[in-house]
């Protein structure tokens, strides 16, 4: 017993040293700021600044004043639509890359083409959609040229749909990547086995491929939802007057309103929503993995 504990201690020290930096970094730059944020959420706004306090007024305000919960619900709605759209588009794309493309080189090339936009500034890509969807934009010009319309349609830009379209485009790679990995990991002989057992391709997709790639879908959808939920660029660039999202509200509380306590309370609520979602996603994923063994 004694010898063992000495050994354990001897090996623990260098291990501790090895992890001291990352653990310290995580503590100092993640845990501590979250702690400060939660603490400030109980402070009181007192013009022109705010004073330390412990009261739940900020939270009460968030849940009683429609301007806050309306925006939270709207953000959740948009993030859900983006997640749905990105998944519905990203999954077939990943499927196509994995199962339809036959040559390895073409597959690698197309996969790169899906991923490459991530290297381009997010702001620039969002901005590009403005020039596509605008009244004088590429889409309207094309429709006019084709004779489909004679007056430009303004419905394409500066509304919630344009935000969903833009965010969907931006987050599709985040769905394609994990789904691609999940699909690639499915042994080909499972698909052959399914067909061998008399099940047609579509049945094979529903009963074998889809359940076995559910993990990739879950992680892709989770990442997409969380990133879309926290987005503040799309509302500013392509959103309309009804496009305010939670992140814009946060920005306003920490900037214009100079109401850090309310902003912190809002940020805490957002953090809790995201954490609940991650927890749910991890549970779903684990349940799936247990099923897969």
């Amino acid at each position: 017993m004694r010898g063992k504990s000495v050994l354990a201690r001897r090996s623990a020290l260098p291990v501790l040293g090895l992890f001291a930096l990352p653990v310290g970094w995580a503590f100092l730059l993640l845990i501590v700021p979250y702690g400060i944020m939660v603490a400030i959420s109980f402070w009181t706004r007192q013009f022109p600044l705010f004073v330390p306090d412990f009261q739940f007024g900020n939270y009460l305000q968030l849940f009683s004043d429609p301007q806050y919960y309306t925006v939270i619900l709207r953000t959740a709605k948009i993030a859900a639509l983006v997640t749905l759209a990105a998944t519905c588009l990203g999954y077939p794309l990943a499927y196509y890359l994995v199962f339809v493309i036959k040559t390895e080189r073409l597959r690698a090339l197309l996969y790169m083409l899906v991923i490459v936009p991530l290297w381009v500034s997010y702001l620039l890509r969002t901005y590009t959609w403005k020039t596509i969807l605008g009244t004088d934009g590429a889409l309207n010009s094309a429709l006019k040229w084709l004779g489909v319309i004679d007056q430009p349609i303004s419905l394409f830009l500066y509304n919630q749909w344009s935000m969903v379209i833009t965010l969907t485009y931006i987050f599709i790679p985040f769905v394609v990547m994990p789904v691609f990995a999940a699909l690639e990991n499915i042994p080909r002989n499972l698909i052959e086995a399914s067909e061998d057992l008399g099940v047609r391709p579509f049945g094979t997709f529903l009963r074998v491929i889809l359940p076995l790639s559910a993990g990739g879908v879950i992680s892709g959808a989770t990442v997409t939802f969380c990133l879309a939920f926290g987005d503040f660029v799309a509302p500013v660039l392509v959103g309309g007057p009804d496009g305010t999202m939670v992140a814009n509200l946060l920005q306003s509380q920490f900037g214009a309103a100079l109401n850090w306590p309310l902003g912190s309370a809002l940020a805490t609520v957002v953090l809790l929503i995201v954490m609940a979602l991650l927890w749910l996603s991890a549970r779903l994923d684990r349940a799936g993995r247990v099923a897969l063994g």
Partner: peptide, 8 residues
């Protein structure tokens, strides 16, 4: 102003 912007 924030309430105006948050309104649907």
């Amino acid at each position: 102003w924030n309430a105006v912007k948050a309104a649907p």
